[in-house]
Design a protein around this nucleic acid. Structure first.
Length: 539
RNA sequence: GAGGGUGUAGCUCAGUCGGUAGAGCAUCGGACUUUUAAUCCGUGGGUCCGGGGUUCGAGUCCCCGCACCCUCACCA
């Protein structure tokens, strides 16, 4: 009885016995599969006179489902032979078809697939013996001539084989791929290699992030790295992860936002500054929430929220262009039109449309809240209004739409409108019911800021509030922060929209999961003592 | 945190009314020099998520637990 992984160990040993290192070495001057494919036109049919003639368009015919019989085509030509360039490719074996003294392999690198033909007569006995020891998933390098098989498939006709890396575990099922969502996340490496489109999504993510940096750098922004260990979880309304520094004997939290340190840099004269980084929120997990996620925050001195609105549009439009996409994106069977300018509607307008209530009808809003199952009792009217807005308006915003001018009392870090202190100069961008961006004209008045930090809105737990006292931040503001616009964008959600992904875990390489049961037992066995936040005073 | 769903071979999945655990792919042995998910012949492979219970008998029914997925809540 030979189980798949045992068979692989046996082959590993046989490869070693042939004097070949099963873990490989560098393989210089290799060409990507995509590059090799671009050279398909160099494959010609050479007559005995030396004249070379082009092949018929075999790829187009195959793509159209009507493959040309290349063997028959060649038979019609004057005597001659196929010629093609020498190539060097490397990748993983994803399919193999043995056929007596020849063997076909589908080789995959991260640019695509290409077929390899290994003939005993062409590669010699030693390499052919080696090829019999190939398993699905192994890494190999191939030198050979690019050409066409009888059916017209572009193929590397191997002349020399290199073994680059053994795989000891069997790969997923070869047609269905890896379906189990848990395994796809735990073993992302298998998902990336064997499931169509996964690599594309993550490479698109990289392109989007690069595009965002390009857009900001072009506008004269400076990228910085703030601290991730904070003493106060400020800048957003979320529960933090708690941790502990032993040497300083000090409790710490992981940052929930980038905001307060970037504003300190505005005080320091970094007039255009941004950070693209991970933040951590100790909240629930859902298809739109992961405990750690990537945020962009950008601050521009002498700007305001309207400047940030334009910047937001620019960032998204540039990202779409970088992806080589138009402004129309299909997501969840719906078409989203990112053609700028995006729609702009005020908070109160949308609120009135959805509820039929006047935005200042405190009694009516409380009554409405009760009707839809919310509890208005003991809460500030703006908190109730905000809860109603979230329940009745946000989910229905297909967008892209900027919701502008929020109730000031729920925006403790935002400057108020000069002509109406009850309204804050803030916008949020919604697309498909998801909040993608959040921005405001930054509050730079240290006296008002301190007051807002002190005043806890009724009905809000301190942890749930954006207004957490941060004396060090107030001190910074007292040193003079220029008026500025600030912007935050949830990168993961933006990537979801631009790649058609419906679950945030499809755009995060390693989303948080509980450890698998076997590992959990090991962990428990290893750590009998609970090790949570144990101060190192004893040592 | 609440409700619903899923968990069977390495992978993808069947499994009827409670009655001997199944298929395809992969593996292993054999044939095959132009295949395309190659094909053909043959072979091995199971903690039916874990633990209890009911029963002569449990993959199947009941209870408890675990993981993942979905919806809702908190949140971006």
């Amino acid at each position: 009885m030979t189980e798949p992984h045992e068979a692989r160990l046996i082959k590993l040993k046989k490869i070693q016995e042939m004097g070949i290192d099963p873990w490989g070495h560098r393989f210089p001057e290799r060409q990507y599969v995509s590059e090799v494919r671009q050279r398909a036109g160099e494959v010609k049919y050479q007559l005995e006179s030396g004249e070379q003639i082009d092949l018929p368009d075999l790829d187009a015919a195959r793509a159209a489902g009507q493959p040309i019989d290349y063997r028959a085509w060649k038979a019609e030509q004057p005597p001659g032979e196929e010629v093609g360039p020498q190539v060097r490719v490397a990748g993983r074996i994803v399919l193999q078809r043995g056929q007596g003294k020849i063997k076909f392999i589908t080789l995959r690198d991260w640019t695509g697939d290409i077929q390899i033909m290994i003939g005993k007569a062409q590669v010699g006995d030693r390499d052919f013996e080696l090829s019999k020891l190939f398993d699905l998933g192994d890494w190999i390098g191939v030198e050979g001539r690019l050409g066409r098989t009888n059916t017209g498939e572009l193929t590397v006709f191997a002349e020399r084989l290199h073994f680059l890396g053994k795989t000891l575990e069997p790969p997923p099922e070869k047609h269905a791929g890896l379906q189990d969502p848990e395994l796809r996340q735990r073993q992302r490496y298998l998902d990336l290699t064997y499931n169509r489109g996964v690599m594309d999504v993550f490479r698109a993510r990289t392109k989007i992030v690069q595009s965002i940096r390009d857009t900001l750098n072009r506008r004269g922004y400076c990228e910085v790295e703030g601290p991730t260990l904070h003493t106060v979880a400020g800048g957003a309304a979320a529960r933090p992860f708690k941790t502990y520094h032993n040497a300083l004997d000090m409790p710490l939290v992981l940052r929930i936002a980038l905001e307060l340190h970037l504003k300190r840099l505005l005080v320091g004269g970094m007039e255009r500054v941004y950070e693209l980084g991970r933040v951590y929120r100790n909240e629930g997990i859902s298809p739109r929430h992961n405990p750690e996620f990537t945020m962009l925050e950008a601050y521009e001195a002498f700007g305001d929220y309207k400047v940030m609105m334009e910047l937001t549009e620019q960032i998204i439009v540039d990202a779409l262009e970088t992806l080589g996409r138009g402004y129309q994106v299909v997501w969840n069977d719906q078409t989203i039109d990112f053609t700028p300018p995006f729609q702009r509607r005020t908070y109160d307008e949308l609120f009135a449309e959805a509820t039929g209530l006047a935005p200042d009808d405190v009694q009516g809003i409380a009554e409405y809240a009760r009707q839809i199952g919310l509890e208005p009792q003991g809460k500030h009217p703006d908190v109730v209004k905000s809860e109603v807005f979230e329940a009745k308006v946000e989910d229905s915003l297909q967008g892209p739409i900027f919701v502008i001018d929020y109730p000031a009392s729920i925006c403790p870090l935002t400057k108020r409108k000069p002509d109406n202190p009850a309204v804050a100069e803030r916008f949020e961008l919604f697309v498909q019911g998801m909040e993608i961006a959040n921005a405001y004209t930054e509050l730079n008045d240290p006296i008002l800021q301190e007051e807002l930090f002190r005043t806890q809105l009724e009905g809000q737990a301190e942890e749930d509030s954006m207004a957490k006292m941060d004396h060090d931040f107030i001190l910074a503001l007292r040193n003079g922060m220029p008026p500025a616009g600030g912007l935050g964008i949830g990168i993961d959600r933006l990537v979801m929209l631009l790649t058609g992904s419906r679950n945030i875990r499809d755009v995060i390489l390693f989303p948080l999961l509980r450890p698998p049961q076997s590992a959990q037992e090991q962990t428990e066995a290893a750590s009998v003592e609970p090790q949570e936040s144990t101060p190192a005073k004893a040592t």
